[in-house]
Design a protein around this nucleic acid. Structure first.
Lengths: 130, 130
DNA sequence: CGGGATCCTCTGTGATACTG
DNA sequence: CAGTATCACAGAGGATCCCG
């Protein structure tokens, strides 16, 4: 009995929190985004530039990289620093908030690494039975 | 230094894991779903019936409830048991896998509960500055 | 280098009505 | 009660071209 339900109920019950306003959903929607968690983990070792991030996540489009970074900045997970050189230099770095978020996120990533084979197996079994 | 980047790189680097096959993305896509994590936490106290879950999450549509439950079952997070009574009775329950998933999930939910005000504040500040 | 602007596709989600 | 079927839509994400 972990008590997870009670904590969740406290939010769901409140009509005020329903859907949009629910803080849980609010946070989860960022983990959810196809690239958010990836970019946050990329910045764990220190600031990175736009092109560096693009190389780190080879299959992201420029559009999505820009958009995801702006969203993360908007929510205070990262900072964006422009150095007025020629050519321009822009660095992205984790905030304290972003860094603290990596802790619970890592728990999830570890779980995924250890259990994804079970998921695949379950899925395969489910699909053949149907 | 949490080492989260190295663990992630191990997956991203591998061409084999890119996007679809990446186990991290695979798991995160389920936490992401608008209702998945909510339903999993709901089942933490024990099995529940379809209508019970619907009452627990008032703003979910029948369609999404059905679909999300089937997806969770497919991936082995929950079981679906049909009692051939009249009227029919169907119970959903966590598997061991589903139960173990709640542990890292709770870490994220706790973080959300503690930090969502910072996110809101950062967002508001970002929007007014622009 | 670090994006912005535009157009397009596809998936997730919702509303509604119907069924064993 | 516990769903299925159909239609509709918004937004996520991608492709491409352009710019200071």
């Amino acid at each position: 009995m972990s008590g997870i339900k009670e904590k969740t109920v406290a939010y769901i019950g409140h009509p005020e929190w329903s859907s949009e306003n629910c803080p849980i959903r609010d946070v989860l929607n960022h983990v959810s985004g196809k690239w958010s968690s990836l970019l946050l983990t990329a910045l764990d070792d220190g600031p990175m530039r736009f092109a560096e991030l693009r190389r780190f996540v080879p299959d992201i489009s420029q559009r999505m990289l820009t958009k995801t970074l702006r969203d993360l900045q908007r929510d205070g997970y990262i900072t964006r620093t422009v150095f007025p050189t020629q050519p321009p230099r822009v660095e992205y770095a984790l905030t304290e908030e972003g860094r603290s978020f990596l802790i619970p996120l890592q728990g999830l990533i570890d779980w995924a690494g250890e259990n994804h084979w079970k998921i695949r197996a379950a899925r395969a079994s489910f699909d053949t039975e149907s």
